[in-house]
Deep mutational scan, measured.
Amino acid sequence: SKIRITWGDKTWEWDGDDEEVWKRILEWARNLGDEELWRHVKEWVDK
């Protein structure tokens, strides 16, 4: 399956939905430097 994140007018996609993928997404969000996006992603990961 895919994980799709839409933020503003951008959309990103990742293949898979296991823990490793979420770790990569969390790292990606942090590297993007958008605090609010990172917080949202972290909330999803922690669920």
Rank of each mutant, 00 (worst) to 15 (best):
L26Y: 05
E43H: 12
W14C: 02
L32N: 11
R30D: 08
E20F: 13
W7Q: 03
R30N: 10
S1D: 11
H40E: 13
W12V: 08
K47Q: 13
T6A: 08
K10L: 14
W7G: 01
V45I: 14
R39V: 09
N31L: 15
W12Y: 15
G16M: 13
W12L: 08
K23C: 04
D15P: 11
R39T: 11
K23L: 08
I5H: 01
T6P: 02
L32V: 14
L37Q: 02
H40D: 08
D34T: 02
W28L: 02
E13F: 05
R39L: 13
L26F: 06
K42R: 12
W12P: 00
T11D: 06
V45S: 10
V45A: 15
D46F: 04
E35R: 03
H40G: 12
G16L: 12
W14R: 00
S1R: 12
T6W: 07
G8V: 03
E36R: 03
G16K: 10
K23W: 09
N31T: 13
E19H: 14
I25F: 03
E35G: 05
I5W: 04
H40M: 14
W38F: 15
E27D: 14
E43I: 06
D46I: 06
E19R: 11
E13I: 07
R4G: 05
D18H: 13
S1F: 11
V41E: 00
R4I: 14
R39N: 14
D46R: 03
W12K: 04
I5L: 12
T11R: 02
E43Q: 11
N31R: 09
W7R: 04
E36M: 06
K42W: 09
E43K: 07
N31Q: 11
R39G: 08
W44C: 03
I25D: 00
W14Y: 03
V21W: 05
L26T: 06
W22A: 05
W38C: 10
E43G: 08
D9K: 01
D15V: 10
R30C: 07
T6N: 10
D46W: 04
G8F: 12
W44L: 15
I3R: 02
W38G: 07
L37E: 02
L37R: 01
W38T: 12
L37P: 00
K2W: 08
W14G: 03
D9L: 01
D34C: 10
E27M: 04
E19I: 14
W12R: 02
N31I: 10
E43S: 11
V45T: 06
E35K: 07
D34K: 01
S1H: 15
I5Y: 05
R30E: 08
R24P: 02
V41S: 00
E36K: 04
E36N: 07
S1P: 15
L32P: 01
I25T: 01
D46M: 06
G16R: 09
E13A: 04
K47D: 05
N31A: 15
W7Y: 09
R4C: 09
V45E: 05
H40W: 15
V45K: 10
D15T: 10
T11L: 09
L32I: 14
W44A: 06
T11H: 08
I25R: 00
D15E: 12
R39D: 12
L37C: 04
H40K: 14
W14N: 01
R24K: 11
E35P: 14
R4Y: 12
L26G: 02
K23A: 12
K23M: 12
W28K: 01
D15F: 07
E36T: 05
W7C: 03
I5P: 00
W12S: 03
L37S: 01
N31Y: 10
E13M: 04
E35S: 07
I3V: 12
K10P: 01
A29Y: 02
K2M: 06
L37V: 05
N31W: 13
W38H: 12
E35N: 05
W44T: 05
G16H: 15
V41A: 01
D34M: 07
K10H: 10
W12M: 08
D15L: 08
L32R: 06
K10S: 12
D17H: 10
V21G: 05
I5S: 00
N31P: 02
D17A: 14
D34F: 07
E20M: 11
E27Y: 04
K23R: 10
W28M: 02
D15C: 04
L32M: 15
E36G: 04
K2N: 05
E19C: 04
K2A: 09
K10C: 08
I5D: 00
L37H: 02
L37I: 07
D15Q: 12
V45R: 09
W22L: 07
V45F: 15
K10V: 11
D17Q: 11
D18A: 11
A29L: 03
E13H: 03
R39Y: 09
R4F: 11
K47V: 11
E43T: 07
T11W: 11
N31E: 14
K10F: 10
W12E: 04
E19V: 12
L26C: 06
D17P: 09
K42H: 09
K10R: 11
E13N: 02
G33R: 04
